[in-house]
Amino acid sequence: MEAISDKSTFTDDAKVMSKGQVTIPKDVREVLGVGNGDRVTFVVDHGKVTVVNSAVFAMKYLQDQLKGEAEKLGLESEQDVNDLMKSIRDED
Protein backbone atom coordinates (compact mmCIF):
# COMPACT_ATOMS: atom_id res chain seq x y z
CA MET A 1 0.00 0.00 0.00
CA GLU A 2 1.33 3.41 -0.93
CA ALA A 3 0.16 6.50 0.95
CA ILE A 4 -0.82 9.47 -1.21
CA SER A 5 -1.65 12.21 1.29
CA ASP A 6 -3.28 10.88 4.45
CA LYS A 7 -4.80 7.73 5.96
CA SER A 8 -8.09 8.20 4.09
CA THR A 9 -6.43 8.37 0.68
CA PHE A 10 -4.27 5.51 -0.54
CA THR A 11 -3.65 3.20 -3.46
CA ASP A 12 -3.57 -0.56 -3.50
CA ASP A 13 -3.39 -3.15 -6.23
CA ALA A 14 -4.44 -6.71 -6.89
CA LYS A 15 -3.67 -9.30 -9.52
CA VAL A 16 -6.37 -10.35 -11.99
CA MET A 17 -6.58 -14.14 -12.10
CA SER A 18 -7.36 -16.29 -15.16
CA LYS A 19 -11.14 -16.14 -14.64
CA GLY A 20 -11.11 -12.36 -14.07
CA GLN A 21 -11.25 -12.73 -10.30
CA VAL A 22 -9.56 -10.22 -8.03
CA THR A 23 -9.07 -10.37 -4.28
CA ILE A 24 -10.03 -7.04 -2.76
CA PRO A 25 -7.21 -6.03 -0.42
CA LYS A 26 -8.05 -6.06 3.30
CA ASP A 27 -7.58 -2.30 3.76
CA VAL A 28 -9.98 -1.63 0.86
CA ARG A 29 -12.56 -4.11 2.24
CA GLU A 30 -12.39 -2.28 5.57
CA VAL A 31 -13.01 1.10 3.91
CA LEU A 32 -15.94 -0.36 1.94
CA GLY A 33 -17.33 -2.11 4.99
CA VAL A 34 -17.60 -5.44 3.19
CA GLY A 35 -16.78 -8.94 4.31
CA ASN A 36 -17.27 -12.54 3.30
CA GLY A 37 -20.46 -12.96 1.26
CA ASP A 38 -21.09 -9.23 0.82
CA ARG A 39 -21.50 -7.76 -2.65
CA VAL A 40 -19.73 -4.84 -4.30
CA THR A 41 -20.88 -2.72 -7.21
CA PHE A 42 -18.59 -1.50 -9.98
CA VAL A 43 -19.59 1.98 -11.16
CA VAL A 44 -18.03 2.71 -14.57
CA ASP A 45 -17.95 6.34 -15.71
CA HIS A 46 -15.97 7.36 -18.79
CA GLY A 47 -13.15 4.90 -18.22
CA LYS A 48 -12.99 5.32 -14.43
CA VAL A 49 -14.19 2.52 -12.18
CA THR A 50 -15.32 2.99 -8.61
CA VAL A 51 -15.96 0.00 -6.34
CA VAL A 52 -18.65 0.55 -3.72
CA ASN A 53 -20.51 -1.49 -1.13
CA SER A 54 -23.64 -2.71 -2.99
CA ALA A 55 -25.96 -2.23 0.00
CA VAL A 56 -24.80 1.36 0.48
CA PHE A 57 -25.03 2.02 -3.26
CA ALA A 58 -28.58 0.64 -3.44
CA MET A 59 -29.74 2.73 -0.47
CA LYS A 60 -28.19 5.91 -1.93
CA TYR A 61 -29.80 5.18 -5.30
CA LEU A 62 -33.19 4.65 -3.66
CA GLN A 63 -32.85 7.87 -1.67
CA ASP A 64 -31.94 9.79 -4.83
CA GLN A 65 -34.94 8.34 -6.69
CA LEU A 66 -37.35 9.20 -3.87
CA LYS A 67 -36.02 12.71 -3.29
CA GLY A 68 -38.88 15.19 -3.22
CA GLU A 69 -41.62 12.56 -3.19
CA ALA A 70 -42.63 13.31 0.42
CA GLU A 71 -43.19 16.95 -0.47
CA LYS A 72 -45.30 15.95 -3.48
CA LEU A 73 -47.49 13.85 -1.18
CA GLY A 74 -47.72 16.63 1.40
CA LEU A 75 -45.84 14.67 4.04
CA GLU A 76 -44.34 17.16 6.45
CA SER A 77 -44.01 15.14 9.65
CA GLU A 78 -43.58 11.63 10.95
CA GLN A 79 -47.25 11.67 11.91
CA ASP A 80 -48.16 12.43 8.26
CA VAL A 81 -46.18 9.35 7.22
CA ASN A 82 -47.84 7.22 9.90
CA ASP A 83 -51.28 8.41 8.81
CA LEU A 84 -50.47 7.59 5.18
CA MET A 85 -49.27 4.10 6.12
CA LYS A 86 -52.44 3.46 8.14
CA SER A 87 -54.61 4.53 5.22
CA ILE A 88 -52.65 2.31 2.83
CA ARG A 89 -53.03 -0.62 5.23
CA ASP A 90 -56.69 0.26 5.64
CA GLU A 91 -56.27 0.60 9.41
CA ASP A 92 -58.58 3.61 9.89
Rank of each mutant, 00 (worst) to 15 (best):
V49C: 14
T11E: 14
Q79I: 07
I4Y: 07
D27H: 07
A58D: 15
L32T: 07
A3F: 10
I24F: 05
E30Q: 05
G33Q: 01
S54C: 05
D12P: 05
V49Q: 14
L75D: 13
P25K: 06
D90H: 09
K7P: 11
E69N: 13
K67W: 07
S8D: 12
G68W: 10
V31Q: 04
V49M: 05
M17V: 09
V81L: 15
E76Q: 03
K60C: 13
G68Q: 10
I4D: 14
D80M: 02
G33D: 01
N36M: 06
F10H: 10
Y61W: 02
E78H: 07
V34G: 01
K86V: 06
L73Y: 00
D27K: 10
F10T: 03
E71A: 13
A55F: 09
E30T: 02
G68E: 10
T23I: 12
K72N: 05
E91Y: 09
L73G: 10
E69Q: 12
S77I: 03
M1V: 00
L84H: 11
K72M: 09
D13E: 13
V34W: 07
P25W: 00
D90A: 13
K26I: 03
E2L: 10
D90Y: 02
N36P: 06
G68V: 09
A55V: 05
D38S: 12
D80L: 00
T11W: 00
V28L: 12
V34T: 02
G37Y: 01
